[in-house]
Structure formats: structure tokens, C-alpha cells
Amino acid sequence: MVQVSMKLEMKDTPGQLVRALKPISDTGGNIIAVIHQRESLTRAEVIDVQVVIELPEKRLEELVARMNEQGVTVQRIGTERLIHKKSLILIGHIMHTDLTDTVDHIDTTGYAEVSELELIMPAIAEPSSARMMIKATNAEAMNKALEILRQVARKKDILVIESLEENG
């Protein structure tokens, strides 16, 4: 699955928005957000709509074709490949156990990466604390990435604190 944001242009006629959005579910996608800005009317009888959707990467072309058939012009497409995010806290000797190596274990997977890292080192020889954001292509990839992190952390005697919500 990829997350896609699209800017659409369509005729301002009754039912047109519903017709424009129908191909999304037809191609196995989920709508995350629809932003419909009526006041930004530029030309008479034409409206701009922004949608954020999630769909199988391979079906993106098909979706655009189907939308075109409905009389919708796709003006812009932006995709984000790594849509699953998870925030963790690490405690231990994070720097001195080769932080680059720890991060590389995730980044070299091809399906996940460390996207944010905030590190606090209170004093020399004291354990440091870090907040780490991991992004992954999907839930399964996230679980695999987390298992890699847990194993690396165990070897380096680093405590990994995971969130409760996403594990529930």
C-alpha cells in the first residue's frame, strides 16, 4: 500500500464528487481525507478537490485512468511509500554502542527506516534516552523492523519502550 495525495479537478454538477471518488474503492483503495475548497473556485463550473488515499501501489495508474473516464482531471499526484509510523523510546548507552549501526539495521531493510531521532545525554557514563520514529511500508514490515530493533537492543543492553496502543 502507498499513501497518495491527489489534486483533482471536476465539473461542479450534482453527484460529480461521488462519481469521482467511486474508482478509489473500485481499485482497492481507502479514502483518508477529502478536502473540498469551494471558495477557491478559479473557473466557473469547475471545482478543485484534494484527496488523500491509501491504495495498492500497482493500481495507481488504473485509478487515474478510471477517474479520467468519469470526467475528472488528475492535476497532481504525490506518493509516500512509508506510511506506517511508530514512535519508540530507547534507554541505554545508545551512542557508545554504535548508534549508526543500530539505525543501519533498520535502514538497510528496504522496507523500513528511522525517520526521526532525538537523543538526550544527561552526563558522561550515564545512560542516555532517545525518541525514535520508525516508518515502514506496512504493518507487517513494521513488526519485522521492530523485531530487528529488539534483537539489536538486547545485544547492546538498550531498553526499548514501545507504545501500548499499536500493540493492543
Binding site: 534507554i91 532525538e118 538526550i120 531498553l159 519502550i161 507504545s163
Partner: peptide, 17 residues
């Protein structure tokens, strides 16, 4: 092993431990 810094970092996301 929990540090006050870890709680502070969680706090930045409006979370706690």
C-alpha cells in the same frame, strides 16, 4: 532503568510511560 529524560521525550508527544 527508566530515566527522567525518557519521560520528558514521551511528554513531547503528549504521552507518558
Amino acid at each position: 532503568q527508566i530515566t527522567p529524560e525518557a519521560l520528558r521525550l514521551a511528554g513531547e508527544d503528549d504521552a507518558t510511560i
